[in-house]
Design a binder for these strands. Sequence first.
DNA 1: AATGAATGAGGGTTCATTCAT
DNA 2: TATGAATGAACCCTCATTCAT
Lengths: 186, 186, 186, 186
Amino acid sequence: MKAKEKIMTATRDLIYQKGYHETSIRDILAASDTGKGQFYYYFDSKKAVCLAVIRSHMEEWQTELFDGILSADIPAKEALGQMLDWIYDSHKEQEIYYGCPVGNLIIELSVVDEDFRALLLELVSEWSSQIKQRILELADHELTEEEAKVKANAMIAEIQGSILLLKVTQDLSILENNFQMIRTNL
Amino acid sequence: MKAKEKIMTATRDLIYQKGYHETSIRDILAASDTGKGQFYYYFDSKKAVCLAVIRSHMEEWQTELFDGILSADIPAKEALGQMLDWIYDSHKEQEIYYGCPVGNLIIELSVVDEDFRALLLELVSEWSSQIKQRILELADHELTEEEAKVKANAMIAEIQGSILLLKVTQDLSILENNFQMIRTNL
Amino acid sequence: MKAKEKIMTATRDLIYQKGYHETSIRDILAASDTGKGQFYYYFDSKKAVCLAVIRSHMEEWQTELFDGILSADIPAKEALGQMLDWIYDSHKEQEIYYGCPVGNLIIELSVVDEDFRALLLELVSEWSSQIKQRILELADHELTEEEAKVKANAMIAEIQGSILLLKVTQDLSILENNFQMIRTNL
Amino acid sequence: MKAKEKIMTATRDLIYQKGYHETSIRDILAASDTGKGQFYYYFDSKKAVCLAVIRSHMEEWQTELFDGILSADIPAKEALGQMLDWIYDSHKEQEIYYGCPVGNLIIELSVVDEDFRALLLELVSEWSSQIKQRILELADHELTEEEAKVKANAMIAEIQGSILLLKVTQDLSILENNFQMIRTNL
DNA sequence: AATGAATGAGGGTTCATTCAT
DNA sequence: TATGAATGAACCCTCATTCAT
């Protein structure tokens, strides 16, 4: 693996597990087995890597969730169900529940730094928009765009809030129950 | 105002607005117009003040929300509605939407420090339990305890997730719409 | 026990066990169960208590060793032997061998602060002088004053050096063996 | 001179002259004309530099005293005499008599920190062992190992105690006289 | 004779970043 | 591309002492 990649992977993992502030450049270098020189050759700053990490999350969501699951040629209900599975699966194997990599950063950084907020908002907006399309489809287009948007945001809120509860309780059943409830309300 | 109180108020505000890590002792001293010695006379450490701040949030929720709104002699539906108002009101006048003081700390600290998680979990558990009682009442006790608990957690998730979205979008209408949706689903 | 006395006892113990710099005023207050006000009412500063502690050591040595053992109406050899016993006894029951309360302070403070050195020197000089008298007696006055003084200092050196070795080895047999050797050389 | 070396030299001098606690990192930086970052680039902590300083003393003693003087192909009496000269010479030119760099640390730190004690003990043990060999030789092997060991420790005690007296009296003649006495007793 | 709140300089340490090579 | 030495501001915290009461 190339140095740049190693740095990004390490940063992604560390920031996910400990948060932005608790992750030091030292930590990143140690975890990626690289040196100061390499780090600052590839990235301008700690902020820059973190923004890159967010972009990598965005790409992943785009490929797997937006272009994959949510754009698949399957009924809306099924697509949204698979989205919940996709999220649930990313948590269920963890020994410690670290929360949502995106939600965590929203809370830790979006008020403190506009650049972070802008990027994170971009991701959330796209997500909301994708869900909205499926909700419109689900309702057989008897909902207005606005109504569908509200429902999409409600769904995202329920998901993010559930992961937040998972983080504080460290009890996976909360995620299961809440996601089940979302499914039955579709 | 006494020094200890000034320090706690300043810490509370700063941590709410910037988060735990972005708030330095220096910031707290400047905001509370006190000196280092005084800070450490009243508190053992930065962590200690923050735990004290969380406890003050707990007391406030206990008095205003649990013993006040949720224990009031009014119908369950109304009580839960007032809870949503109480939360909404705490955000609506803000110029910047900083999120939920408790939710923020859950995400920033609960994985990183067990003491914080324990305290925050205590608050969330009590909240959940209080809501559960009202939900049982609402369903005329046709729900099992377990079902009511799930519904309570779903409601908390929806609330916390909505505030998270408010934080990243800085768009108050999301909170309005989502809370409205919770109301209509009661 | 009066506050002043409690403070002095605590200081004496703490400085003996941890040294001057490792002992904080906080430690002293905690160990003596007194408050800041009392401390600074009775003593001008940390240095002042410590000087008082040294003076209390001097008084003790004066009474027990100089006026007691070394002035007793017994043969010189026996007097010097009892001196060694007196010293040995003060160490033998300890669980940790902290060294000589006076020797410790000589090394920690005599270069750093003239006031300390002056006081400690006073004690050492008196000790040396007392031993010298007994050595003169022992040699049936066939030694010059100067020669006796040299022998006295050699004896003090042997004693202090032995206690230093005790401190680093934490092995009491070193003290026994060295003191035995001093005895046989009398 | 390289930064690391400058830091070590400065630390060595300062700790020798003022002791461990009286020497601050600031002092070291000022004396070595380096910056904070540099210090912590080379050393993990203040304790770590001090341990390194002790190790450098050990190496010096090993080379000059143990492998040099005490292992030289000369009679035992002469070797031990040269050892005394070597020690005396290291003090005689000083304007202030700071004591023995090793003895000072034994007294200041060996009870307070096990890591220091272990290292200092290692040095003292080796020293004792080297002297013991020469004493055995001197006695034409009519002494048991144990008896020689006791005599070696007595010699070290006399040396260390003499330097302690030098420190409190600031009178070089004490060192001269005591060392002379050791010589005549060989 | 005693209280405990207030002071602020200084303690050791970590940080993100830059520089010379 | 990459190294690792150098920078210095900022981190949290402890210190001995003073002050008002």
